[in-house]
Structures are given as structure tokens and as C-alpha cells.
Amino acid sequence: MSVVETKVPAGFVPVYTRPKALSDKRFTYCPGCDHGIITRLVAEAIDELGIQERTVGVAPVGCAVFLYEFFRCDFAQAAHGRACAVATGIKRANPELIVFTYQGDGDLAAIGTAETVHAANRGENITVIFVNNQIYGMTGGQMAPTTLPGMRTTTTPEGRDLRSTGYPLKISEMLAQLDGPAYITRQAVFDVRHVQMARKAILRAFRNQLEGKGFSLVEIVASCPTNLRIPPAEGVRWVKEQALKYFPLGDLKVRE
């Protein structure tokens, strides 16, 4: 097997290159983590809409805590769960900016539930990327509100017991009941087809903001191979066979 080729011979033209909205910084995610794909899709949307110079991101606390290092756009680092409130402040202060948050399920659906629900209900004209991997990854694999029934985590060593810990929180379904949001959708990135669908959804969520349509949230069902203790490629099967049972994909609310 040859060593890694780095020179492109004459006659070859690029058909897929690294998004310009990404910085040169290596992602700090674990090998095979879906976060990397989702982060890249956000950058692709920013490139496609040509909004890098007016975009402000809001980084969460969690596995994407270093998000501001990965992008070539302005960024605020928010306290745990407060990203939607911080985004509200930025957007209200300067409505010309394109503001997005990027949050995990612990950040958005546990400690930040109130901020998320009320930003959605106000119809804040922001874009929310919600990565649901059913676990607290950064802190070492504790139960999240989205943890699946029976799923083993470091705080549910015998598997999540619904009688004492409740049910996987379906935050997108909750938000879709509100009148405020413009767009609530649930996507996944476990194969190319779904990556392409997620890409379209993220693009739409940003375009909605450009068009002043209001609150748009793209939930992406992901896996955390590291804390599930499975090889990265098996994360695909996890999402398809386990997570989608509780988090079915599709648009939950679309306001034209």
C-alpha cells in the first residue's frame, strides 16, 4: 500500500474540498464522532450562503466546547445550556448578524431546556443545531435526558430504568407543538444519503434566518462510539437500530 498521497497530479480538478468557513484547526472530537460531520455541514451551509463575514456562532458546553476554534467566523462561548439566550442577545443587539447555536442534548435538552423552549416560543430569528447523541460525552458518558431505555451509562450502570429516570425527552416534538418556531426537523448523518438530507436541512435552517422566518432547529440523531464503547463504524448501526426507534427522522414543523 502506498503512503498517503498529497500531491494532486495534472488533469485532476477538485470536486469536494474542505469548507472555507472552517479554520485550519483539527477537530477535537473523538475518532468517528458524528459531531465532525455535523460541524462540517454547518460550515458548508455558511459557505453556500456566503455569510461567513456576518455569521456569529454560539458554542456550547460539552463536546463542541471548542467549536469557536473550528470556524472562521465570530463566536461567543456560552455557559452550559444558555446558548439560545446568548444568541437572542446577539440577534436582538444586531439583527444584521446571522446567529446560530450548536448544542448537545445535555446542553439543550437538560440544563438549557427553558432557554431553548422560550427562544423557540418567541420565534427568535436564530438557527439552532442540536446534536442528540443520547449521552453526556464530554464528562464521560453519564445519562442524558435523551438516553434510551435500558441504555447503559456511567450513571445508569444497569441500564436506564424508566421508572426512576423517566423517558427519553423528545424536545423536537415538544417544540413542534409551539406556534413560535418556523422549522423543526430531525435528521441523522449515519450514511451519505442522510448526510445529504441533513445538509439540506441545515441550509434551510440558515436560509430561514436570512429570510426572517424565525426560529429554526435541526436535531441530528448521532451516536457516541467512545462512550458506547463500540468501534466508530458501529455507531451507524446504533443510530439506525436503536436511536431511531425513539427519535424518528423527518420534519416535525415547517412554516412556509
Binding site: 485532476f12 480538478v13 477538485p14 469536494y16 460531520i37 451519505v192
Partner: peptide
């Protein structure tokens, strides 16, 4: 074949894909 599927799935945005297009060049 330059189908780009690997790049689309790469979680580290580490793959760039090129197509052989001498005519276009």
C-alpha cells in the same frame, strides 16, 4: 471514481476529492 462519499462521511473534514478532467483543465 471520485464519488465523494468518503469525504461526505469523514468526521474530520480530512478528505478532499478530485476528478480527472483533462479537457476541462
Amino acid at each position: 471514481t471520485g464519488c465523494t462519499m468518503c469525504a461526505q462521511m469523514c468526521p474530520d473534514a480530512a478528505i478532499e476529492v478530485y476528478l480527472y478532467r483533462p479537457a476541462k483543465e
